[in-house]
Design a protein around this nucleic acid. Structure first.
Lengths: 187, 187
DNA sequence: ACCTGAACACCGTTCAAGT
DNA sequence: ACCTGAACACCGTTCAAGT
């Protein structure tokens, strides 16, 4: 209660707390306005204090990306299609979520968590090349989500001619079409 | 000759000149270091002078993106597969080219030039839904190129375990696999 | 161990004023 | 028409010093 009234001023922080606060600011202000200085102010701390907990902004954003992906419903026994839809939803749930995830994806050496989840699903489906299938589907999924999210935000601002809901519906059909080509059930 | 020795100092500029200079700096320094101030210095002009020719940085980057896409070999009578490979090559040719193109793609209202080129190819191939096929393929193409380009740059820095050439070869196979699923020749 | 204070080397953009 | 000069409101990051 006290710390809520006073903000976070004076409280101790760890990496997890930074990630949570960053995700909150991301949803509220968007990626272009998510600065280390703003995050520090939000936590009631000097900018330099953040660098005790995290090496740099890029590392922090990678942790935010992992958190976003981890939020995708993770019931095992899921088909490739279900897994992909769940991941898509997770990226679209947070403002600029797709951009955060795709821009961190290649920096983490090797396949990131998103690609690994898809790979597990392809393996369960007895694909002949789960690694390749997962890579391709991950590329489509992230590219799709990135483009869709930008357009929906543009539509929300009104810089676009169509209603957000229309855009959303049409992009679901895009995703379904791509998925059915890339993840034929059976093999 | 004179203007080469003296740099661009004092010469008049238009939008096309800015785009050309920006593309040059992009290749040399990469997107994170392509600033309006650096571009101005390169042209021998004050930063504020750029805003006579272009509304803002975002607009300039959109023009750079269009230039990159326009550089893709554009012989009509090309199959979807050939068109897609040509576009992929164009994005990968310039440093951070894929990022520049994907981040501008959704800001231009409606389908951008990359998607339109694919649509024309799908139409020539008598697809039942050229607009949807082009949208899906564009999403895969840009997502793929973005991820591939980042990884290849990481490999070049040595932050990666594999040789750049290996990475490049493996990603060509990814692209081929995605394309053959999304662009079945015939229908 | 965790944070402050102060600095360094930058940004994009605006706008009056010059030519 | 095209550019300068100066300012505004910011950035990410480092590092000595405090507690």
């Amino acid at each position: 209660m006290f710390s809520i009234v006073m903000g976070m001023r004076g409280s101790r922080h760890d990496l997890d707390g930074l990630v949570e606060a960053a995700l909150q600011l991301l949803d509220e202000f968007g990626l272009p306005d998510l600065s280390m200085r703003r995050l520090a102010t939000h936590l009631g701390v000097q900018p330099s204090a953040l660098y005790w907990h995290v090496a740099n902004k890029q590392t922090l954003l990678a942790a935010v990306a992992d958190r976003i992906v981890a939020e995708a419903a993770a019931s095992s026994q899921e088909s490739v299609t279900e897994t992909a839809w769940g991941l898509r939803e997770a990226l679209l749930r947070h403002r600029d979520g797709a951009e955060v995830v795709i821009s961190s994806a290649a920096l983490s050496l090797g396949p990131g968590p998103l690609e690994l989840r898809l790979r597990a699903a392809y393996e369960a489906q007895a694909s002949t090349d789960p690694a390749r299938d997962a890579a391709v589907t991950a590329q489509f999924l992230m590219g799709h989500a990135y483009l869709v999210q930008q357009r929906m935000q543009a539509a929300a601002i009104g810089a676009y001619d169509a209603v957000p809901a229309q855009v959303a519906e049409s992009t679901r059909a895009d995703f379904a079409a791509g998925l059915s080509a890339l993840a034929p059930r059976g093999s």
